[in-house]
Design a protein around this nucleic acid. Structure first.
Lengths: 246, 246
DNA sequence: GGGGAGAGATGCCGC
DNA sequence: GCGGCATTTCTCCCC
């Protein structure tokens, strides 16, 4: 068991040295800022990163249950046999108060990492794939532009179809929903209005589409085209195949 | 410094006891599933929760740089003086491979927490506030329904205005954008079509609205009403006031 | 810094 | 399970 009063100095020193801090503890939490929240007593993991991000994780679930953004100031205070972690972000008008009953583990370490992640299979990759080969979406399409930031908006892929009609393709890497349809509709309307042309086609390219979205899409004279984002499951399937070989 | 080969058993035992695991290490990461990603060598914190969620956090930033969802299986393997954390989620077709060079710290502990967080200041709170007092949005509004799940969609607040015209209010707790306008527009159109009435008003209630969204809103004959979500910044302002008193 | 849109989004609720 | 939608969304890009 930790001597709680000594932790305050360890915590402060770690902050001063820009170390990352990880603490397992039993606590209750109040947050006030963009909203107000209260979390009653339970066991959690608290991370304070070298950029002063704070994360509180319960022992289940993907997301932090509470957090403070980078640039927050933190003070660990010992009072009346309890620890209080008081965090403030003046500029964001956010504050958090964690009342700590018990500390299960406590570590600090200088961690250095400037690496950026590389990801493929994103929507941008998908729109590039379609731009490079529009026949994936429809026969006879000719690419005009990709990922173009225009006054009409951010249009994924712009083509002309086999009849020379301007065609806007909106990509979704997931099951396309109502919001995807309204987004496409917005682009088509903007291009029509600003170019003063009446005929602009809209195609929604995604692996799937919800029934209601399909309905609304067709009500507006648009078309769905089933396209999967590139490289999805490629490595996994390869690996599974290898495993099956044994 | 840790004896790497011993960690594998500690790790396995912790998993078997449903303990949560936290490890600071130097590693590189490959992920394959919904997309593919690679993260070159650097210092990170790895959390494995009692529900087998895996999170990898860099020493900066809010979000995990890599993660695996609850229900993933994990194996820590020692081979050729290196550790490999191999994680697989068969049903989601996702896999991760973490190659670990060095371990800075390693802790496991049984953490128990069944608490749910209470939050106020959400959009639901905001729509309830407006339903209870529609004059916050416009004089003469009479509430009809709140948070109604209809075939047209999920309408925040439904009112009649001072002339008895059906009025749909869409709430946003943040700066309203183009998507918020298209959402409102969708509801108004659906209600018009399904009820067979030509006059349905739409009001967007939010603390702010972007210029383009305001433009589109007015183009469609809708109205913006400046409303703040309840309790936002309340505690913070109170606290600041107290501090100023000193 | 604000606007616009994606995210390996996640999580919640309702059907 | 899917659909619809909010999120203390966060993050990135571009103006």
């Amino acid at each position: 068991m930790w001597k709680l009063n000594e932790l305050c100095n360890l915590f402060k020193d770690a902050l001063n040295r820009n170390e990352s801090i990880i603490m397992g503890c039993r606590c209750k939490i109040n947050y006030s800022g963009r909203a107000e929240s209260f979390l009653d007593i339970g066991d959690r993991m608290i991370l304070v990163k070298s950029d002063n991000t704070l994360l509180v994780h319960q022992p289940q679930g993907n997301n932090p249950i509470n957090y403070m953004k980078p640039g927050t100031t933190h003070n660990l205070i010992y009072d009346e046999k309890k620890l209080f972690l008081k965090s403030n972000n003046i500029s964001l008008k956010e504050s958090m108060n964690i009342e700590i009953d018990r500390v299960y583990f406590f570590n600090t370490h200088k961690l250095e990492d400037g690496q950026n992640i590389t990801i493929c299979g994103t929507e941008a990759d998908m729109s590039k794939m379609i731009y490079d080969d529009p026949s994936l979406v429809e026969e006879g399409l000719k690419p005009v532009s990709q990922e173009e930031q225009t006054i009409y908006g951010f249009i994924d892929v712009l083509c002309t179809d086999k009849n020379g009609i301007l065609t806007i393709i909106e990509c979704k890497r997931y099951n396309a929903d109502l919001a995807a349809v309204t987004q496409l509709r917005r682009y088509v309307e903007k291009v029509k209005a600003s170019k003063g042309i009446t005929q602009v086609r809209g195609i929604l390219a995604a692996p799937k589409i919800t029934p209601n979205a399909k309905q609304m899409l067709e009500d507006w004279g648009f078309i769905f085209s089933a396209v999967k984002p590139p490289k999805q499951y490629e490595n996994f399937d390869k690996k599974q195949k290898t495993l099956e070989g044994f």
